[in-house]
């Protein structure tokens, strides 16, 4: 039973004097309660905009969001601002990319943590301080009583991200959205933060949407993965299946681009040729087609159809020529889900 249902989410940014840009273009996905879902893509693929749209944190001006985002039986896109503020931080919480800039530099760590507890749990400041100490302790911050009185600049980057995580889990949300939570951190700290997130999610049973460009993060953490390219989901698959048999040429390219330590030939690293275009209109065909080694005529003339490849867990790909798949049995056609 999925409790977050995103359907046909489209985010259009209008720019003065230029044609509008569709940063997110008809994205649909589900998150079951307690499930860990990864959204993978490079910069500009629309993954962060998707997460901000779920939180309704996109600027109101020059941005149009259409489609549907159902949290339980609540439609978030039409929820009045007042009720949306009740949802944020209580039902859905977000962890941002850069803990250096995401914490207010002139307010103590304690106050920033306490304010969210006071806001949603309707507790006194004293009671909330108790909770805050327990939370800091839970996310692995030593000497929490002292840290509570400190300011963000007195903490290391990893510690700050732990504070961000403590703030996010403070009101036991059913859904955590983590937008590249480890990108700004040292590699050694990255692993610790991911371990912490995994433990917290398992312990609390809340669902996690992990937005990342790092396939390694996805491999270690997520059950279901959605790969985004140029505003659309191009492949959705269980993590194991995705890594074993990537169906979309883009996913395949990404996986091949990961340098391997056991690679015996010391040749050039694999890359996907070309680069992400500023604006790619899917109307004229697959947006990845100009960079794709497997492109055929069927890739042009409109958005490619979504094929259902599931032989068990849900698995879909937006490509007319999915790779690494067993040939369909004679006489049976792959089901087209949508155009």
């Amino acid at each position: 039973m999925s409790f977050l249902r995103v359907r046909d989410l489209t985010v259009t940014f209008s720019r003065p004097g230029k044609p509008p840009v569709r940063a997110v273009d008809g994205v649909s996905f589900d998150v079951a309660s307690g499930q860990t879902v990864g959204i993978v893509g490079e910069s500009g693929s629309g993954k962060s905009v998707t997460s901000l749209a779920v939180m309704r944190l996109l600027p109101a001006r020059n941005v149009r969001v259409t489609g549907s985002i159902m949290l339980g039986d609540q439609e978030l896109l039409t929820l009045p601002a007042r009720q949306m503020r009740d949802v944020r931080g209580r039902d859905v919480a977000m962890i941002f990319q850069d803990p250096m800039t995401s914490l207010n530099p002139v307010v103590t760590v304690g106050r920033q943590l306490v304010e969210v507890i006071v806001r949603h749990d309707r507790k006194s400041t004293t009671a909330a301080r108790h909770d805050a100490i327990a939370l800091l302790d839970r996310v692995g911050i030593p000497d929490p009583v002292r840290r509570l009185r400190e300011y963000p600049h007195q903490l290391s980057g990893g510690m700050r991200q732990r504070v961000m995580i403590a703030m996010a889990i403070a009101c036991r949300p059913r859904l955590l959205i983590a937008d590249e939570p480890t990108t700004a951190l040292d590699v050694t700290i990255q692993a610790q933060i991911l371990d912490l997130l995994r433990d917290l999610v398992e312990e609390s049973g809340s669902a996690l949407v992990m937005i990342t460009h790092d396939l390694g993060v996805v491999a270690g953490l997520c059950e279901q993965v959605h790969v985004m390219y140029s505003g659309r989901i191009v492949e959705s698959a269980p993590a194991a299946g995705l890594f074993a048999r990537p169906a979309h040429p883009y996913t395949d390219g990404l996986l091949r681009s990961i340098p391997r330590i056991d690679d015996d030939h010391h040749g050039r690293l694999h890359t996907i040729r070309g680069s992400v275009r500023d604006v790619v209109a899917w109307e004229h065909g697959c947006a990845f087609q100009p960079r794709c080694d497997h492109a055929v005529d069927a890739c042009l003339g409109g958005p490619p159809p979504v094929l259902d490849l599931s032989d068990g867990p849900p698995r879909q790909v937006r490509c007319p020529r999915p790779m690494n798949q067993p040939a369909p049995a004679p006489g049976t056609d792959r089901r087209e889900v949508s155009a």
Partner: peptide, 26 residues
């Protein structure tokens, strides 16, 4: 446009709190 104002919004804080504690003070 600072990230910490977005964080404050993401916590669901009331507009008055966001303005006083996170916008004006800075």
């Amino acid at each position: 446009h600072e990230d910490y104002v977005r964080t404050a919004e993401a916590k669901g804080l009331l507009p008055g709190t966001v303005v006083r504690r996170h916008v004006l003070r800075n």
